[in-house]
Design a protein around this nucleic acid. Sequence first.
DNA 1: ACCGCGCATTGATCAACGTCAATAATGAGC
DNA 2: GCTCATTATTGACGTTGATCAATGCGCGGT
Lengths: 218, 218
Amino acid sequence: MPVGLTEQEIERVDELVGTRRKVARGMPLYLSGESFQSLFAIRTGFFKTEVVSEDGREQVTGFQMAGELMGLDGIGTGQHNCDARALEDSEVCVIPFNRLSELSREIDTLQHHFHKVMSREIVRDQSVMMLLGTMRAEERLAAFLVNLSQRFLSRGYSATEFNLRMTREEIGSYLGLKLETVSRGLSRLQDEGLLSVSNKNIRIHKLDDLKKAMSPRC
Amino acid sequence: MPVGLTEQEIERVDELVGTRRKVARGMPLYLSGESFQSLFAIRTGFFKTEVVSEDGREQVTGFQMAGELMGLDGIGTGQHNCDARALEDSEVCVIPFNRLSELSREIDTLQHHFHKVMSREIVRDQSVMMLLGTMRAEERLAAFLVNLSQRFLSRGYSATEFNLRMTREEIGSYLGLKLETVSRGLSRLQDEGLLSVSNKNIRIHKLDDLKKAMSPRC
DNA sequence: ACCGCGCATTGATCAACGTCAATAATGAGC
DNA sequence: GCTCATTATTGACGTTGATCAATGCGCGGT
């Protein structure tokens, strides 16, 4: 949350958070087409966001964890443009968007912070475009795991040992691969000694080499 | 530009636009790493945005035309995160970001409009992710052409006859394909009678069928 | 108007990934 | 603790798009 606020301002930002909401594993936080009213800040848990095209194609557009903001895609049209679904039992803070708008008009630090969050989401999406447009299957997997690793680390968890919350199919959808290719890729990274896979449990042995595996074949 | 403003507000939004800037074909509007100060609204011309990864990979992340806003990616870090380059001689309005921030704190219509623009950019990026993640080469090409067609139409130009401003290689980079694949795809769409290609000139004969060509094989 | 280089097209071959299929392992629910 | 459905692994094979290569064309610059 933004720093550099007066105590009074902090109080007002606190009261901005309307309610909390629990979302059980597998349940939607919101669905595409629903009216957009609020943003959601994840307190605990893990989500995926997924877009469904007219012809029925599904694409996972991201995995979100504690501290991240969801729902930004709904501002433009007033309707949510993707489904957000909990991958484990989760809890979110509900942030009514019109109150956020009002308050950010009064507290410029809040305004600036909000703009930064939106901009970073754009940059994140662009790096996924790069991944999908230019990387080979094993490189995508390595990039995906390194990204997860860094995000766990920044939350105080281990960067080298964690449990995946999503299935191979969901990983594949996110990375533009089929689930079999994801499975083979993980097996291959394991064979190369970079990590151990046991179902959803990942132990990274050589994080440096995994980072190198994001780049074209050595 | 936003509607529903008083005359006084319109004046103030007008004075927000600091200067204009001309960018010759091939020249950068900004480069990755440069300090972010302003957003740019395209008055005339055509741009591409491109990200370059650490290991040297390049990915075109979008093509922008008159009326569209560029530079949103720089807000989060204070530095531009991609290159923006003119594909033809162009002119932009320079919008100093700190003045936009101030003014949007006073004019809520402006604030809301700005938030919508950012949100739509996120949604646009997600639909590119869908394209890159799930579509086959010819489907991507069809989707690309249909998108261009609609954007020309909404600007008062022909939806069925236009000139591409970018090379096959740039199209390929955007679509996650090699330039040869782009060329073959265009030839194939031509053979199927959906359109005519003559270098950069495109004439769409069957827009409906082209839209259908975005979906999996019939 | 001309020249030259960048851009586009097309063909042949190849590798990566998808598809289809069979089996195994896991864990959620009773 | 057991069972079944879901998820994951692995193999064999097919297809798509990448790669390599050669040729032709057009347009920008002088």
